[in-house]
Design a binder for these strands. Structure first.
Lengths: 346, 346
DNA sequence: CTCAAAATGAGTTGCGTACCTCAAAACACC
DNA sequence: GGTGTTTTGAGGTACGCAACTCATTTTGAG
């Protein structure tokens, strides 16, 4: 009837006895310190393994003395999504200080590779972990690898640099996000045939390009009745997005769906309403004050969301686990793609 | 450019000096021990407040010595959702033992109020925290309140007992889940008019009743072209659900949508396919091996999911925070309603 | 076999808190 | 002013581990 999921609480002393060595040797093995014969290392490791020994987190944390410092390198300038991440980190301040964790925000121009790389290099040695919203560029990749080599734990946030040796990526699978958007547009259009428009910031941005790729994939394979128009590049700006879209709507009377890949949402919504094309199925990204309003008004039909609170907390937890040498709960730290419609607005 | 989110690391000794008292007195205040003048208590509290002092979690944990024990009281018998929760707890075993947390599963008949209440009463004094999948019944409520009075931290899991004094509920808002299901069925039907069927376990179950309530709300207000048929009560059994639904499908040729509120999914799918009514929009709950297959086959169109992994971890985290007297990160522990379609299957 | 280098043992200290004891001081009451 | 009670101080121990020192043993090369 009752079933226990955890094992007894051994200590290092027990492991030392088991392995037939002293506490000092166990300590040397545990922290990869030199001066232990390979054979002895094996014996100790086996004893740890055999008893599935886990160092007591609290004791280890207490003993190491100095507090851990993490840095969040984020885009400068106003960006609601990033501001949300910062706000959520602020909400955690009690949690952070109870664990003696210092978290600092560092604003920089993440869209300029050399500036970003310089910012990263400047952090070397000062932090135990760094979370960075990174551009995928060779210079940035090199800066990340340098930090990794210096022993800093690195997590890419929102936008990944898969070619680097970063320890973890906290963000969504953008291809899957695009696929989801495609499925939503296709399904919500509901059997009608016609054209579908795409508004993106730029196809040069990795996440945008991936989303468009996934979107097109689904449209081609599952919704042959819908044809996708060439991508409009609105640079995530309201005015430009509005202008481009207004022109497109004028030229195509049979647009039935619209996927807004990045920001510029305000402009997109305005173009739709001024053209009197409110019935167009409109799917976009992220739950902000604006998209929330548009969803409630029925202008937007669905938003693909990547919970910024979860991303902020996951980044901190992952950095902490990496710094402690604990395993990462992958399932927990995975950022899910949320479909938000009017009735499940968070 | 850089901005720090945390404060300096004070210790109890600092607080004692600040307040002009000894360590012993601070300790007495912190743990609500008797023998301190009200005036002194205030001075100490103010010093803590003024410096926004947070006890070092690791030190506190280490000092208290004995490990914490949590119990999960779950339904006996085969239940995929509950099995998943148990599996996810198993995945956490490293995390748990590194924190010296003991978690035990206790299987019982949660659908029999007196049996469940007896199981709960039997736990008194043995556990620091209890997570329970609870029936909302006066006897159960009393048992929960007794445990609370005995100092045990209580979390209701999946199914709430709002009238009790449980410390927290980990689960979804079932009315919102029903609304979401309604919105999905309505939208996916895509403008056609016709009838909509509902299959539930029982309208006597709180969560099922709430979901149906939310579903009907949306259908009535937003989809006047769809009329909802009387609820079929399949008792979450495949055979019974299939039989009832098959009969209903036979009588109504114009059924365009179907909401399966609980289990019995296998039977529902079978009834649909044997009647050759695959085009009916079918929305159900939870991602299991079965619903995953049905989604991929296109039989089911969407599933409302309440990530069991998240629920298991949230329950543990909440119990731990309660036991430590830490604040709960509400935003983090909130269980979201996930909409799962073929293209965002987790 | 000798000797230096490598490997290991034994031990100490400190992290910040919980929990405990005992003595001293402050206080209230008559 | 003396009594008893309440409040406060001072100090110790323990928790499990990190990080270190120094002495001792073992090993391998010549």
């Amino acid at each position: 009837m009752a079933e226990t999921l955890t094992t007894a609480a051994l200590t290092l002393k027990d492991i030392a006895r088991e392995a037939g060595v002293s506490l000092a040797t166990v300590d040397r093995v545990l922290h990869n310190r030199p001066g232990v014969r390979a054979d002895t290392v094996r014996r100790v490791r086996e004893a740890i393994e055999r008893n599935s020994f886990q160092p007591h987190v609290a004791a280890a944390e207490l003993a190491r003395g100095r507090a851990r410092r993490f840095a969040f390198v984020m885009p400068s300038g106003p960006n609601p999504f990033m501001q949300q991440i910062e706000a959520y980190l602020g909400e955690m301040s009690g949690w952070l200080s109870a664990r003696r964790l210092g978290v600092e925000m560092i604003a920089t121009d993440v869209f300029d590779a050399s500036v970003l790389a310089a910012s990263l290099e400047a952090l070397s040695g000062d932090y135990d972990g760094v979370a960075v919203v990174a551009l995928d560029h060779p210079t940035v990749r090199a800066a990340i690898n340098d930090l990794v080599d210096a022993g800093t734990k690195i997590v890419t946030l929102v936008s990944d640099v898969p070619s680097s040796r970063r320890h973890h990526y906290v963000g969504i699978d953008n291809i899957a996000a695009g696929r989801t958007a495609g499925a939503l547009v296709g399904r919500l259009v509901g059997g009608r045939s016609g054209k579908v428009a795409i508004v993106a910031g730029s196809q040069g941005l990795r996440d945008h390009a991936e989303r468009i790729f996934g979107f097109n994939q689904v449209m081609a394979s599952e919704f042959p009745g819908l044809s996708v128009l060439p991508v409009l590049e609105g640079r995530d700006e309201d005015a430009r997005s509005e202008q481009l879209l207004a022109r497109l709507l004028g030229r195509h009377a049979d647009i039935v769906g619209l996927y807004n890949v990045g920001a510029g949402t305000q402009g997109v919504a305005k173009a739709l309403s001024e053209a009197g094309r409110d019935k167009v199925v409109f799917v976009g990204h992220d739950v902000t004050a604006l998209t929330r309003r548009l969803l409630l008004q029925g202008v937007m039909d669905a938003a693909i969301s990547q919970n910024p609170g979860h991303e902020a907390r996951a980044a901190v937890r992952v950095l902490l686990a990496l710094a402690r040498g604990e395993p990462i709960l992958r399932e927990q730290e995975k950022i899910r793609i949320d479909i938000v419609m009017r009735d499940n607005l968070p």
